[in-house]
Amino acid sequence: MIELREVTKRYRDLTAVNRLSLHVGRGEVFGFLGPNGAGKTTTIKMIAGLMRPTEGSILVGGIDVAVDPMRAKALMGFIPDRPFLYEKLTGEELLRFVGGLYRVEGRRLDQRVDELFELFGLKDFRHEWIEGYSHGMRQRLVMSAAILHHPDVVIVDEPMVGLDPQGARLVKSIFREQCTRGKTVFMSTHTLGVAEEVCDRIGIIHKGELIALGTKEELQQQAKGDADRLESIFLQLTGGEGMTRVVEHLKS
């Protein structure tokens, strides 16, 4: 469903993503992990059509995002890490605006808006201006907007930031539910527990290069087999053992 072919992104002298190739299938929840500055957000923005790769190509549903961005974007729903929204629209107006952009109209839109406010627990706030929403409420609203048009692919950058435990649980179950319906979820996260719990496969990016890819068990083997939790595997693969030593030192 998502295919990255030798994707490279350079900013002047800095190579943020280097010859990244990846395939994510239909009905898969894919976790994209990496330390800060590894190239996760850049990759996600390239898939979502917000940035162009310097080299290589990205296909979503078989459509090249750079060649036919409108058709590719119609298949996707995007959730950014920071939910900046139009502050002086109400939650309902925002969803109706997004509906218009994705050409969801009339009764179909009315029904979907009701459904999403109910699902995300925002029913009582639908007529409130977004400027009055908390960070978690905004995040929920953005998620509603992203899945409003029943996209085949959901691209998520840091889905758990600012969510309360109920919100986090809701999001995890929504991702799994999307997957059972044959939809694809591509998410980057720092919350390794979430990746461990929700993702079918995980890719780890470090300094712009994909250094590991597979199920948790496959990653465990790649990390020489002595780590059992994703956190330890991640730290081993990204050279974060130093951090573990620091934590041990602080404990002592």
Binding site: G49, L50, M70, K73, V98, L101, A145
Partner: peptide
């Protein structure tokens, strides 16, 4: 404003 991403990521 900062909400421009919403339009950029939509098929418009």
């Amino acid at each position: 404003g900062r909400a421009f991403w919403l339009v950029r990521s939509a098929p418009i």
